[in-house]
Nucleic acid binder design. Structure first.
Lengths: 330, 330
DNA sequence: CTGAAAGCGCTTACAG
DNA sequence: CTGAAAGCGCTTACAG
């Protein structure tokens, strides 16, 4: 910038004015400065700008896995909102690891992102309290923060799971299993609660072998499904706790082809669910909505720091396609 | 930092040493500084650090659409490599728009990312030349840059498409169609070339109605598929140009159920391809490999700026599942 | 082992 | 309309 000023024979501030399109520069001066900029190939260094202005025009998004299709629409929605605010998005995965979540979130805070969108992997978020007090707007998405009060945008996990199981019950099932994510994950626990609510409301017992929580690694899910279907107390229908689980269970069911069909309702919609045979009935979340609402809240908070923390819950939608309407076998 | 120094009764440089874990501080001093840091809730401001050091420890990744499943594994692979280099990832989508690509890439350069990974959407990348000369390492992924010499990591699009079509020919097809992305997109053009090569090698003609290039919007693809299958000169097999096209074509074929089956080979693998009926034979790209190799090259270049630009081509793999082995109808 | 001074490249708050 | 000075919060290059 100094070089540009020198070459154009003007002061630093005038260059700054031209670069930022501020008024108060004669056309002639502006032209001379622009010429120097082009000749020198000058580009403003935003790092310096940021240091002075305070705002980085950057927000961070911490999620579990960039490659999980659930986060695709969510990320895209966040990006669209950020873009409307001329803000860039730093994207990172915790890989389901609480330590990595914290490491990433704090690294983003050190970069002085204006705001932080976090899909929590960890059990405790007090580590973010000083950062939030220091002015980094923070919104939790898909799962609530633990140990601190903060803006949160969730799906109606309890209601969704409950309606999915009620749907199976309405189609005659009484022996229904639930395979979900790790119990420490809020969504998994809430969906389990929804499952239990629906069973209870129908006066149905839940046998111990009918609930299996754990990692969504295919081997673990496969084993859980096979035990539930092949054990002494087999279920006739399943609720799967998220799209990773559903995909594996669909595989297991396809391999059992010659056996009696098992009804299935999956939590989370997924591409091609409608083309499988049977097509998969799901409790669909509004993944893009989660991202959009959370990002909007983040930018609202950036403008009004005194907003009290709020929790928003987005509805889910039962999408009937076939697998959830299979009658109980036997 | 000044406050910390004041409270601990030491100089700025000593605080800096403690914060960065540099040697040359007595245990006692270190303890006093650490205490002040904790009491004041101090966190180093990386913007200032960056301004001084030159490197931002950030790389940018410009792709087409965060929600396209093809980019999931690619992004994740880039992130893993970046993480190994203690580097953060700024992720953005061009939404297939050349202007947005340029806008995004230049914004990232203004932020002084250390490096840039670009999946080009635009027809001309000379706009990046000054940035690259100014020291921003740049690697193009999935498609080559236009108008400049730069590191590039590609799939073997020509060879992959050729092998896919040869596979269909080997199964008796002579009337084969190709539905692909916009012709200005390098991968689409290369895959078309592979299709033509295979047809020519088998001595088969390519009728005008058998090739359809254009947007991957479902309506466009649907129309193209219906015309090719229902016209006066119908094909018995199809090569689809990427996963977006394949998914729509699978839908069209499923709706035609009662008709004679049409053979299909899709470019790009996709989740659940094995569970469709028929399961979908694909030419699989190594999406994670593209990201990994490109990111590694980027960090190599960060260390040795004098590397000559190189083009790497990753092999594809034909995954035989059923849809590509259907015999020609009629 | 420790610290004072200069500077990274901008913007802010003024003054002319 | 234009510009000189100070400062954002660090690190670098020295000196003690």
């Amino acid at each position: 910038m100094k070089d540009v000023a020198g070459r154009a024979g003007v002061g630093l501030k005038t260059v700054s004015r031209v670069v930022n399109g501020e008024p108060g520069v004669t056309l002639e001066t502006r032209r001379r400065v622009q010429e120097a900029i082009d000749a020198l190939g000058f580009r403003r260094n935003d790092s310096a700008r940021v240091l002075r202005k305070g705002r980085t025009a950057t927000v961070g998004l911490v999620l579990e896995d960039l490659a999980d299709p659930f986060y695709g629409p969510l990320s895209r929605a966040v990006e669209e909102v950020a873009r409307a605010h001329d803000t860039l998005l730093i994207n990172g995965s915790s890989a389901h690891d609480p330590c990595r979540e914290q490491e990433l979130a704090l690294a983003l805070c050190s970069r002085r992102v204006d705001g932080l969108l976090v899909v929590p992997a960890g059990p405790d978020h007090r580590y973010l309290e000083p950062e939030m007090n220091a002015g980094i707007a923070t919104v939790f998405v898909d799962r609530p923060a633990r140990g601190i009060a903060a803006d949160t945008v969730l799906s109606d996990n309890h209601g969704g799971a409950r309606s999915g199981v009620a749907h199976l019950i309405a189609h005659g099932h009484r022996r229904i299993g639930y395979i979900g994510d790790l119990p420490r994950i809020h969504t998994a626990a809430e969906r389990l609660r929804g499952y239990r609510t629906a069973m209870e409301e129908a006066g149905l017992p839940v046998r111990p072998g009918w609930v299996s929580l754990g990692s969504t690694a295919p081997e673990r899910v496969r084993r859980a499904a096979e035990e539930m279907l092949g054990g002494p107390d087999p279920v006739t229908a399943l609720l799967t706790g998220n799209n990773r689980v559903t995909v594996t269970v669909v595989r297991v069911l396809a391999e059992r082809e010659p056996h009696r069909p098992v009804a299935l309702v999956g939590f989370d919609d997924f591409e091609l669910a409608d083309l499988l045979r049977p097509a998969v009935t799901v409790v669909a979340q509004d993944a893009a909505g989660l991202g959009r609402v959370a990002a909007r809240r983040l930018f609202d908070r950036l403008e009004r720091t005194d907003l009290p923390p709020a929790v928003v819950e987005l509805p889910t939608r039962l999408v009937v396609r076939g697998s959830g309407e299979l009658p109980p076998a036997g």
